[in-house]
Design a binder for these strands. Sequence first.
RNA 1: GCCGGCUUAGCUCAGUGGUAGAGCAGCGGUUUUGUAAACCGCUGGUCAUCGGUUCGAAUCCGAUAGCCGGCUCCA
Length: 630
Amino acid sequence: MAMTPLEELRHSTAHVMATAVMRLFPEAKLDIGPPTDTGFYYDFDIGHRFTPEDLARIEEAMGKVVGEDQPFVRSEVTREEARKFFEGRGQPYKISRLGDIPEGEAITFYTNGEFVDLCAGTHVASTGRIKAFKLLSIAGAYHRGDERNKQLQRIYGTAFPNREELEAYLHQLEEAKKRDHRKIGREMQLFAFDEDVGPGLPLWLPKGTVIVEELERLAKETEFAAGYDRVRTPHLARESMYITSGHLPYYADSMFPPMTLAAESVPDSQKPRYREEFHREIHAGELTEAKMDRLISLAQEMAKGLPVERYYIKAMNCPHHHKIYKAIPRSYRDLPLRLAEYGACYRYEQSGELFGLMRVRSMQMNDAHIYCTPEQFGEEFNAVNEMYLRYFKLFGIAKYRMRFSTHDPARLGEKFVGEPELWKQTEDMVRRVLADSGIDFIEVPNEAAFYGPKIDVQVWSAIGREFTIATNQVDFAVPKRFGLEYTTAENTKATPLCIHRAPLGTHERFIGFLIEHFAGDFPLWLAPEQVRVLPIADGQMEVARAIERKCRGLALRATVDTSPDKLGAKIRRWQLDKVPYGLVIGKQEAAAGTVSVRSRQKGDEGAMALDAFLERAAMEYRERTLTVAV
RNA sequence: GCCGGCUUAGCUCAGUGGUAGAGCAGCGGUUUUGUAAACCGCUGGUCAUCGGUUCGAAUCCGAUAGCCGGCUCCA
């Protein structure tokens, strides 16, 4: 596969970096050093721990290699020659990589100066062509990306054809950091984390809650129009349900550990009396850590030997929804049945995976399950995809990627339920729906859910990480496990297909994404504060209050700046707070019944009648107008 | 979970073994103000936590927690 000139440059820079590292640390063992979308990396196995100071030293040594203007020379070798060469140099990873090259394919070395690398190429003519590079970070990375393998040290860097482009890229990185939802979320007081609450458990502050509730309203209206029914389910369920669903064996690690309690079958007289004993203990002096330990062992002692049962906090809503399906006998006339809920779920994500709002342990999903017949499937699946696209248009989301995840036949019965026919049928159905609708997508094997193929919509965070923002999944397996059925027109029983869909993902991730997408500059309908009245002096305070009341009468979120500051300061604060409209009220406006409007897009728009402004704002709100440039 | 780094006031950040600082925010007062910062004053920190070294620790060492950059994972 040919590299683009930029990839060639970056890959060559990776070789230069490896050359420099070998000069400084001759004992280093090399793995691989490919280009990436934004730069390059090289993986090293080395006893020394790279430090940020090392990066500067390595950069300096790289500068020397560039100065030596070493030509990159390609040579073909035999497998045996290559193996001997790397054995001689003590490079086990290279020998391992050699094994990846299929028989009959050319084995090539690229040499620059004293540095020789197993490499398919291609490269720039010589190291002197590398004009602008920078090493960015040090990271751990497993050999071949497998957790069971040794962790190597990876150095990330980037390179550009010239200094200017490198500087522009570094500047762009800085700019992206300003969009980071974690920074804006704190500045705008949208959400917060607290150590006592726990990692990955966000608190929605009042302003963030406004956004949450506006999104819920959007979803409810959209889903109502599309024929969904709303349901509500508990946050917990007995272990037995997750055994039925098949989730426990697959996902126990990702769920919070169960709550264990005395079984319902234990007579009351034998059940532990936590209450009295605890009460007595807890109030007998200070509550120390030692005492907590005593109380916990007391509880364990009391429960000892009793039959127990376990409850899990739900990590997904599907099993509960399946139970709602099952609560009532269903006929083909009832299908499709679309059950929607903004369900609260909890997942015990590994600590290192948590990332602001984008990856959390408590979340609310824009979830729904559509139960339908195979004949209805195409139309239903397509309707869900169209709902995605309508939403994306509403939010002005243009940069996304549809991923169609299919199964791997080699892993049937292990990672994927063993129903080869159903896999084929449903994947074909999805592929046909996608083709008919003309949506661009990429197909990725081996990424399906265990119960069926899926379409994920991928977006990128400000700092460039990729996330699934929405999902549309086929499930032909779990309804069967739950014994879901409907009576067909022929009066026989059949199992429905189920579509799991979450076009708005979770509140947490979706809002995290929206914060970055809009850089906090939300369209009016989502803005926590929509209108701020800015009286010039106290003399206009009464009029300002009256305008605030009028706005609120139209459900517009308005406030008055009651500070003793001068207008300039009020405007500045209004601007920094990213409020869509500011209404300046001075003596003239108060007398004329007008407001001087300031908008985020146009700045000072001059005076207009209050009613005219209210009509405009109310319409923007109602229509969910995308008022901001994104 | 793994590798590495970071943690000083609400926020942004100075402070390299010898009495904890600045700007902004907040609070109080004066000013009643016309489109991005009026003026004066005040409050606020167990330097993440615990332990160690030292006559003396924000500063050196260790552990723990949280966060950050990656890896792995992501129903």
